[in-house]
């Protein structure tokens, strides 16, 4: 299966990929009382310097690219759901926080780890194509490639079912 989309590359002012984007930068704790997923999109990344207007720019089907340890910090599910609300198709990061990874997989938000994502030299608006079975990532703008860790069977199963609980309904239990 392939995912194609225009990218937003989370870089700082110096042009470096931002690492350690924690759950408070993704979905600040002042919005934690919000439980309706449709309300969450408007606050995605609004506490990350330089990216406060992300929800206005992002379109359904876009891809987000980030550095190391994306989603570290608290276990809040909203930090995953806010991207789902915006229709983000995929998050590519050099690595993810452990709980974020569990939460993202459980709620069927596609995420993939690409250690050398810089190799595709992507800038905002480039279109990339990601093969989640082989891990191949291609920047369609310049043809540059890199490999990510492909989706595991489990991650694919939960994704295809539409989330952990949807998946459970399909299990023979």
């Amino acid at each position: 299966m392939k995912i194609k989309g225009k990218v937003w590359v989370l870089k700082d002012k110096e042009g470096n990929l931002i690492s350690d984007i924690d759950t408070d930068m993704i979905f600040h704790n002042r919005y934690l009382a919000i439980t309706d997923i449709n309300e969450m999109g408007q606050y995605a990344l609004d506490n990350l310097e330089g990216w406060e207007d992300f929800p206005k720019k992002a379109k359904k089907g876009d891809v987000v690219i980030a550095g190391e340890n994306f989603g570290s910090g608290s276990s809040r599910q909203q930090a995953v759901d806010c991207f789902k609300a915006l229709g983000i198709a995929l998050i590519v990061a050099k690595s993810f926080g452990a709980i974020y990874k569990r939460n993202a997989i459980n709620s069927a938000l596609p995420i993939i780890e690409a250690r050398n994502i810089e190799e595709i030299e992507a800038t905002d608006g480039d279109e990339i194509e990601v093969d989640i079975d082989t891990g191949l990532i291609v920047n369609l703008k310049n043809g540059k490639k890199t490999y990510a860790k492909p989706f595991s069977k489990v991650q694919k199963e939960i994704l295809e079912a539409g989330g952990l609980f949807e998946f459970a309904k399909k299990l023979d239990v």
């Binding site: 709980i99 990874k101 459980n106 939960i158 952990l164 609980f165 459970a168 299990l171 239990v173």
Partner: peptide, 19 residues
């Protein structure tokens, strides 16, 4: 130890996924 969604799933199915 895991979050409440993961544990609810384990209650219901007897399974969990793990890396």
């Amino acid at each position: 130890g895991m979050g409440d969604a993961d544990i609810a799933f384990a209650f219901k199915t007897g399974k969990t996924w793990f890396e």
